[in-house]
Design a protein around this nucleic acid. Structure first.
Lengths: 166, 166
DNA sequence: GCTGAAATTTTCGTCCT
DNA sequence: AGGACGAAAATTTCAGC
């Protein structure tokens, strides 16, 4: 309810960065351990994490599930070229209704969408493409199937060592 | 250290699926709550999760960090066309050395790699591209900058309702 | 897989820097 | 304001059934 400052303390310092990096790697460790790793007491570490959550820097605590173990070994990237999507605006909902789509990004002016799709087989991938055509005025689609994933990792936490220029 | 059966119980049943879905949404809830949500006691729920971790179905417990809050608002997808990468094989390491790369996938025969890159600015994106050219025999690159992310979500947990065909 | 109890951890109040 | 310390509450974890 203050009025002087819009953002009281929206800065992320080195300790926050260390905490975020540690939690990205393993969010199950107790606060005492986490605190020791970043040079804080358990209570202080807890307070930092609470604030990071409150500020929205930490969106959620989740588990990383092995897609192959779940029976979804086929990963693909699909590019959609549609007619007039930006106007419709419930595009996101239509895409979200297809559970095989993990990510949906608008990548160009009006009409180009990039999708990350995970399916059990190429047959199911075909099923997704059919559903995509049924969604709206989809002009063309271009599908790229991933043969091998070299690596996947969370957002990099930049450290403020000063030398980290371009 | 057993020798009779290679995979004692590698199947994922409905309860496991319910647990995985719940944990994807929020992995901070106590086991008592989780158990109640899936119709199990706290102890049984804990045992299920322990086994899922042991089997590798649950790879890790992590936090979802807001990239924009971290100063990395620019998301791009970069396609690389290189000469002979598959033979070299330390390609993954060279790419992993570039922290801005979040994902690296091989998407075609010999030489095409798809990268998911997150940077602070388009200038930093340019810096990444320069480093990519320096890596190896990179013939061409094609970069697509994401204008808006409609949604991102974890791997879908299929439910065995029987009606879920293609 | 369930119940119950011990051990650990989280969480909160208070004081200190 | 932010962190340390200690105690209460909650949770995890392990026993036996």
């Amino acid at each position: 309810m203050s009025s002087s400052t819009a953002s009281p303390d929206n800065r992320i310092d080195d300790v926050d960065r260390a905490i975020l990096a540690a939690l990205q790697h393993d969010a199950t460790r107790p606060y005492a351990e986490l605190g020791k790793a970043v040079g804080l007491s358990a209570g202080a570490a807890h307070e930092r994490v609470r604030k990071l959550r409150e500020r929205g820097v930490v969106r959620a605590t989740t588990i990383d599930v092995d897609a192959a173990a779940l029976g979804k070994p086929v990963l693909s990237f699909v590019t959609l070229d549609a007619a007039d999507w930006m106007g419709g605006s419930d595009t996101a909902e239509a895409l979200a209704a297809i559970p095989e789509i993990e990510e949906a990004h608008i990548v160009a002016g009006s009409g180009t969408v990039l999708l990350k799709v995970r399916t059990a087989s190429t047959q199911e991938l075909q099923s997704v493409l059919k559903r995509l055509y049924a969604v709206d005025t989809v002009a063309t689609t271009h599908t790229t199937v991933v043969l091998e994933t070299l690596f996947t990792r969370p957002v990099a936490i930049a450290d403020r060592t000063g030398s980290g220029g371009h």
